[in-house]
Write a protein that binds this DNA or RNA. Structure first.
Length: 270
DNA sequence: CTCCGATCCTGATGGC
DNA sequence: TGCCATCAGGATCGGA
């Protein structure tokens, strides 16, 4: 599910509702996520005041004075803030209950998500080797060209690797490459300088527009208040195989790249 | 190093 | 209606 726009939408939705409040209880109904939720999580969180909610790539970072709760939403995770007494759904695995009676509730049907306490998140193995933020200053055509030199890997696969750049998943890799006019199957090491510039620009624009729309809801994702994300209506190639390109009218093609469904327009992308 | 496939898990969907 | 195969927004791991 969630790529950078969905995680950022979640962050913006929940941060004002829970920041500055104290955790009074942690309810772990099912701790079997990507990694089992540690038994001592309660000791770290209970009584602590949540200072702020940050994001690094697709990770949400809940900052406390002594450390950080790292949350990843995996493929199907979502977070909502609601009244702590609201009856849970079978896939509502974890609640953080705050001092104002509201709970931050993690729902994750497929349980690919993660909830991990870390005293020093930046140096945690999950975050340490991540690539630059796509909306930050370190994400440049220079950087990508240097990093891609000699690589034969498909550019879509290359862009979806969090060591290259964080936050770009299956939907936005396809959409950004359409916006850049580049076929997803191209070898990363074969792009020209001009093309890398277009890739950087396309990723930034696509992600920013998706954030504006509250992300993309295909099935599981919802914003913090339960509404879906509306960027689905703006998708130009993703999940549009067999339909005419909105720009040139050619039929959108589908291919599997790196085990993931990929979509492109044979007329607009070269 | 680099690349590829298998893998974790549940639910929705479509074909027969 | 039922059953089975396939596919889903992610990311790690191991082997070639």
């Amino acid at each position: 599910m969630p790529e950078l726009p969905e995680v950022e939408t979640t962050r913006r939705g929940i941060a004002p509702l829970v920041s500055g409040h104290r955790v009074v209880q942690i309810v772990v109904r099912d701790g079997r996520l990507r990694w089992p939720v540690a038994a001592d999580i309660d000791a770290h969180l209970r009584g602590q005041c949540l200072l702020d909610v940050d994001r690094r790539g697709k990770y949400l970072l809940f900052r406390f004075a002594d450390g950080c709760l790292i949350v990843h939403l995996g493929m199907s995770g979502s977070l909502r803030v609601l009244d702590a007494a609201t009856p849970p759904n079978p896939h509502d695995h974890i609640d953080l209950v705050f001092d104002h009676g509201q709970a931050l509730r993690l729902r994750d049907p497929r349980r690919f998500g993660a909830v991990i306490w870390s005293a020093d998140a930046a140096s945690h193995a999950l975050l340490r080797d991540l690539g630059p933020e796509p909306l930050g200053p370190a994400f440049t055509a220079d950087y990508l060209a240097t990093r891609a030199r000699g690589r034969r890997r498909a550019i879509k696969d290359f862009l979806m690797d969090a060591h290259t750049v964080v936050g770009v998943g299956n939907i936005y890799a396809s959409e950004a490459l359409f916006a850049a006019g580049i076929r997803p199957t191209r070898a990363a090491g074969r792009l020209t300088r001009r093309e890398w510039t277009r890739v950087v620009e396309a990723i930034r624009t696509t992600l920013n527009e998706a954030i504006e729309a509250g992300g993309t809801t295909l099935r599981d994702f919802s914003q913090a208040d339960g509404r879906p994300g509306y960027f689905r209506h703006a998708l130009k190639v993703y999940a549009r195989a067999g339909l005419p390109c909105l720009t040139c009218g050619r039929i959108i093609a589908a291919r599997t790249i790196g085990q993931r469904a990929s979509f492109y327009c044979p007329g607009c992308q070269h």
